[in-house]
Amino acid sequence: MVLPTGYSADAPIPVADYLATNPRVPPVVTVAGRSEQILQKLLAARNGAAREEHSSKADTVSRQFLGVPYRANTLVGAVNRPEELVVDLEAVDCFTYADYVEALKRADDREQFIDRLIEVRYKDGVVGYRNRKHFFTDWAAATPPVATDVTGELGAKSISVAKRLNRKDSGGVYLPGLPEVPRDVTYIPSGSVDDTVVDGLRTGDYIGAYAEDGGLDVTHVGIFVDTPDGPVIRNASSLRANNKVVDEPLRDYVGSIPGIVVLRPTQ
């Protein structure tokens, strides 16, 4: 159980007694616009692929978002503003896209989707700004993990960098009111992403664009898909030429970033 910020007691108390006087308040769930109808279509596609292998299911679910517009800042919550569990399937950024795909893969109805989205997006299953997994590698660092960091296992010479996530190299922080997070981040430099590395990737792996700033782990996230036309990164692109969820040739994309961080989902 996770206790609310500021809770204290002089002595241990039974969990049942605590819950009797401090019941958990259900999160505010905000389903935007046409997202209810879209969710039903997404769940139908997911359930049609329920018996497929993990990689095929990841391809099927993530493909449903191709063409969905890019939009940043769709989540609601801040240090001084209560967090809401937002479901906005009409427009996504790279991180919310990953959230929705991973939650959909793990759910077969609306209720399960909401529960899985909470598990994917928040630490300890508690909806709150401070509990939100703000950094890509939080997926691997959380307990239980959403994904496993396989970057160092892909057959290339990887590099590990000790970072303090949230602390900008130029001074200040990225997320005011939140602490710095010490973490070793492992990446493969773009020049080392050769055929051996690509062959080791699996459809459904999440690929992060390594950030050179010590306060970030990655600057962008996409999903690796091995298509008949070659490997791509399926991502919510903010580039003016795209501004939507697209497939981009993996090698072209890797050539435009410093390196990659690869997380493999646990389910």
Rank of each mutant, 00 (worst) to 15 (best):
V87R: 10
R183S: 03
D93T: 08
N22K: 11
K133R: 15
P14E: 13
V185I: 15
G215W: 06
R202Q: 01
I159M: 09
G33D: 15
V198K: 04
Y100C: 10
L263K: 13
R51V: 10
L175C: 06
A50D: 00
V127I: 11
F224S: 06
V218C: 14
I118C: 07
R264F: 13
E52F: 05
T227C: 01
V225T: 04
T21I: 03
R202C: 03
G67L: 13
N73Y: 12
Y18L: 12
D217T: 03
V120K: 08
V86C: 09
S56F: 03
P189S: 05
A78S: 12
D184S: 15
T60D: 07
S190R: 05
V181Y: 13
P231F: 00
K41L: 13
D108W: 11
V87P: 05
P12K: 00
A156Q: 02
R234P: 09
I260G: 03
I38E: 05
G171N: 00
E90G: 15
V225K: 06
V120I: 15
K123Q: 05
L85R: 09
Y7E: 01
S238T: 10
Y129E: 02
G6A: 05
A156S: 07
I159Q: 13
Y100S: 06
V126C: 06
L43E: 01
V232D: 05
F224H: 04
A209K: 02
S192D: 11
D169K: 07
F136Y: 14
K105E: 13
V126E: 11
G6D: 07
L250M: 02
S170F: 09
A98L: 15
C94W: 15
Y7Q: 02
F224P: 10
D108G: 13
A20P: 03
L175T: 04
T74I: 11
T5Q: 09
N242W: 02
D184W: 11
A49D: 14
D184V: 11
S158L: 03
A45P: 06
V28H: 06
P82T: 01
V86E: 03
Y100K: 11
I118W: 04
L201M: 01
V126K: 08
S35A: 09
A209M: 04
